[in-house]
Write a protein that binds this DNA or RNA. Structure first.
Lengths: 217, 217
DNA sequence: AACTGTGAAAACTTTCACAGCC
DNA sequence: GGCTGTGAAAGTTTTCACAGTT
C-alpha cells in the first residue's frame, strides 16, 4: 500500500482525520460520513473523499465509512501500524516538556533515549528517560535502534547534532531549533518554530485578511 | 502596504527569509542575491523574487537586495513593525517552556500575562511573568491589551479557553492542544501539534518517498 | 434518500525564461 | 556578467458535479 506520492498537506489532513476518528471510536461511533469527518477537521467533504480515494475505496456508498476500518487504513497509510523509537537531543525547557509529554507513547512513539551536553544533566532521569552524554549519541542510537531524532538544542548546535543523527542512521528529524537544517538526500526533516507561527498570526492580524473559510453548505 | 492576499506558504517563506536576513545583518552582510537568500532558506531564487515582487520592487538589478532594507520591508509586510502583547493560558510543561523562551521578546512579542486553573500555580512568577487565576482572564486581557493568545491547556479545555479569549477581544490564537479549534469568522488560529509532525515523518519513512528536493543548478 | 468515488474544471502555486538594468 | 522583475507555461491542489451503489 502507500503507493501514491501525496502532498504534504494531504499527509497533514490524514493525521487530522485520524485524530478525529480515534475520538469517534472512543465515543463508540460506528460509521462516519465524509461530511461529518470534514466538519470535525475543518476540511470539505470532497476533500476527505478525494484524500481517501487515492489509496483505495474504503467507504460504503449510501452509508459512509466504518470508523474502525478507517482508523486502521489511515494508520497503515501513514506507517503507524507499528511503534517508532525516538531519541531527544537537548534536555532544556522544550526538551523536558517533550519528555514529559506522555501522549507520545499513546500514539506509538517511544522515547528511548535523551542526550545533553551539560554534565550536570547527564545521568539524571527526566520523566523516566535517562539522560546520556552527547558523546554517547552514536553508540546509544545504534544500540537502541533509534529511528526518529528530535533536535531541541540551541540553534548553533542543531545542524551538527542533526548530522550526527543522520550519520548514525536516523532517517527522520523533528527540529525545534530556529534554523534551516541541511539534510542528506533521503532524510526527512520537519521544523517546528513558534516564532514563525506567531509571525504568521501577525500577518493575518495586520493584513486584515480573513483566513479563507472553508464552509460546507 | 500589505495589499495583496498571499498564501499561507508565502507568509511562511517570508518569515524564513526574515530570519535568514537578520542573521546576515548580524554578520554585517550588506547585499544579498535572491540566489543566496534562497539557498539559506531552502527555496529557489525565482520563488524569492516572486514572493518579494508581489509587494514591490526592492532589489537593484545586477546587484541584489539591500539586507537592511529587506529586513525592514518584510517586517512591514508581516506587521512586525511594532511589538505585540501575548498572553499564555495553561502553565504546564509546554506553557512553562514558552514562558522561559526569551527569544520571543527579541522578536517583538511581549508575554504580558499567564493564566492557570491550578490555585497552586496562581500568584507564582514563572520566568518573570506572574500567573493569574483563570477567572481573571477577561479582566487581565482587557487591562493589558492582549492581542495574541497562546492556548497550552489540556485538549478538553482548549475550545472553551479560546472562546473566552475571542470574547475578550483577542483576535489571534496559537494553539498547542491537539484539537481543532472552531473560531469566529475573523479570528486567526494556528495549531502546533508535535504528534502530527511525527506522523508526517513516519509517512515519509514508510513510503520511502524522497522529500522532493529543491535544487538550484 | 444518502452517500461514495471520480473524472473534469477551476483555482492556485511554482517554475521557466528572458527583457531590462546596473 | 550578474541580477532583478515578470509575463507565460507548467504543475499541483482543490472544488465541482454527477454517475453509481446500497
Amino acid at each position: 500500500m502507500s503507493q501514491p506520492k501525496i502532498s504534504d498537506s494531504a499527509v497533514r489532513r490524514l493525521s487530522l482525520y485520524l485524530r478525529a476518528l480515534r475520538e469517534l471510536e472512543r465515543q463508540g461511533g460506528d460509521l462516519v460520513s465524509s461530511r461529518e469527518l470534514a466538519h470535525l477537521c475543518g476540511a470539505t467533504s470532497a476533500q476527505v473523499r478525494k484524500d481517501l480515494s487515492l489509496f483505495g475505496s474504503f467507504g460504503k456508498r449510501g452509508r459512509g465509512y466504518s470508523v474502525g476500518e478507517l482508523v486502521a487504513t489511515i494508520e497503515e497509510i501513514l506507517g503507524l501500524g507499528r511503534r517508532w523509537r525516538v531519541a531527544l537531543v537537548g534536555v532544556g525547557k522544550i526538551g523536558s516538556a517533550l519528555l514529559g509529554y506522555r501522549d507520545l507513547e499513546g500514539r506509538g512513539f517511544d522515547l528511548v533515549a535523551a542526550f545533553d551536553i551539560d554534565p550536570a544533566k547527564v545521568g539524571r532521569r527526566v520523566a523516566g528517560v535517562e539522560v546520556s552524554a552527547l558523546g554517547e549519541l552514536e553508540r546509544v542510537v545504534a544500540e537502541r535502534g533509534v529511528e526518529i531524532g528530535i533536535v531541541a538544542t540551541p540553534p548553533g548546535a542543531a545542524q551538527e547534532v542533526a548530522e550526527r543523527l543522520w550519520e548514525a542512521g536516523v532517517e527522520a528529524v523533528l527540529n525545534f531549533a530556529p534554523v534551516k537544517l541541511t539534510a542528506p538526500g533521503s532524510a526527512a526533516v520537519r521544523t517546528v518554530d513558534v516564532v514563525l507561527e506567531l509571525e504568521g498570526l501577525c500577518y493575518q492580524l495586520s493584513s486584515g485578511a480573513e483566513p479563507r473559510e472553508r464552509r460546507e453548505r
